[in-house]
């Protein structure tokens, strides 16, 4: 592990995060959006693990566990929301679900 420079891990994490963020922005299918969010979470975890390795501290790994748990919960909530949305709108396209905008100005 020690021969991998921490900067490489961080670049990897950044790239992963950027891919996830881009996915959230550009993908309209909510399933992919959820997956992209997962990617972003994983990116954060990678950064934590890299930091933990660098300073030889266990905190980063504890945070990794936290993130995994949060991600699991998030996926559960997200998927159930997705199902409800699919049920209501007969679609998983995020642009169809723009109810926050005023009526009639869509």
């Amino acid at each position: 592990m020690n021969n991998v420079p921490v900067i490489h891990a961080l670049i990897f994490a950044g790239a992963l995060f950027a891919i996830g963020a881009l996915g959230v922005i550009v993908r309209r299918n909510l399933v992919f959006v959820l997956m992209s969010i997962e990617l972003m979470l994983i990116a954060a975890s990678v950064a934590f693990i890299a930091a933990a390795a660098k300073w030889n501290q266990a905190d980063g790994q504890v945070f990794y566990i936290f993130i995994v748990v949060t991600a699991a919960a998030e996926v559960a909530v997200g998927l159930s929301l997705l199902l409800r949305i699919h049920h209501t709108f007969k679609s998983v396209d995020s642009d169809d679900v723009s109810l926050l905008r005023e009526e009639g100005e869509r």
């Binding site: 963020a21 959230v24 922005i25 550009v26 109810l99």
Partner: peptide, 12 residues
């Protein structure tokens, strides 16, 4: 109001 598209993607 133009910013408030109602689309999650834009907010993200």
């Amino acid at each position: 109001k133009l910013m408030q598209t109602g689309r999650v993607r834009n907010y993200a």
